[in-house]
Amino acid sequence: MFKKFSPATDIATHTPLKQSVQRNLRADILAQWAIEPETLEAVWPKKEGLVLVKCREHIAIYTVGAEPLFFQHFDGPYYPTLRFLHKYPYILPQVQVDRGAIRFLLAGAHMMCPGLTSPGGRLPPAEAAIPAERMVAIHAEGKEHAVGVGLTKLSTEEMKAVNKGVGVETACYLGDDLWALATL
């Protein structure tokens, strides 16, 4: 999504959001992420206005004090930015890819099932399976911090069974153009 993104040409508008819209957004995010209201409040205080940055191809980035916090594609889920995820790694369920896949992930590829099911990869056990179309944090073998944020295309149980094709669609990753934008 952010493989090629330059603020000069791809950003359409900056608009501060209405309080009522912000309230709804806050509720949505609390429902989508495993985050306590207090913690969210600390990074996004009520007094601090949220700014919606509209970009081409229906990408909307939300910033607080010029720092991107999360983004959305069409009406999809609200993905946290990677910097945000590094600070609060527990807000999303985690999957892990093996070491061989890191290189491809950093080039913006979607994550294929074999990379997740191989010995270096890790998927949650059957009782904690993640359904399809959910946000996940992509971690990497032997690394502490997340390397990307993605959307599962199959449920984790299906990934184990099929073991072929795209398992997690990458939304943003380490070193993409959103990562390069520390502030907007």
Binding site: E38, T39, A42, Y88, K143, E144, G175, W179
Partner: peptide, 20 residues
């Protein structure tokens, strides 16, 4: 109390976390 954020050390050369 809000949970404190985790501190991540970023490389000043390539901006990635050190391990990357």
């Amino acid at each position: 109390e809000p949970r404190p954020p985790q501190k991540v050390f970023y490389c000043e050369v390539c901006s990635f976390p050190l391990e990357y």
